[in-house]
């Protein structure tokens, strides 16, 4: 591109991110070899899985943890730390 064809974009030409938390929509599911599976019957609502998820892929609701498989990278900390085996792991199919 010729220099004279470049246009000045004002604030849109400044390297800042003005949309907080927009990485939530980034899909990291392809990083996963295994996925966590939640079994409500075994859950004691202790919040350990929620607390220890490094990617905020587990939300906490009145009904307990809700796993967001877009953000989950499959680290399995939740499975390892769950004191009642309410979180188990399953192999990803592909």
């Amino acid at each position: 591109m010729r220099e004279e064809e470049l246009s000045y974009k004002g604030i849109h030409g400044i390297p800042v991110i003005l949309e907080p938390g927009n990485a939530a929509r980034v899909d990291r599911s392809s990083w996963r070899l295994v996925r966590p599976v939640y079994n409500k019957d075994k859950c004691t609502m202790c919040k350990i899985c929620y607390t220890y998820c490094p990617d905020s892929a587990i939300a906490w609701t009145k009904e307990g943890p809700v796993i967001n498989l877009t953000s989950c990278k499959g680290c399995m900390i939740c499975v390892e730390e769950c004191p009642t085996n309410a979180m188990t792991q399953e192999k990803e199919s592909s």
């Binding site: 980034v26 989950c72 399995m76």
Partner: peptide, 12 residues
């Protein structure tokens, strides 16, 4: 949570 998922740091 004020830190969402979707970042490119390592799993775990």
């Amino acid at each position: 949570d004020l830190l969402t998922g979707g970042s490119s740091v390592c799993a775990g």
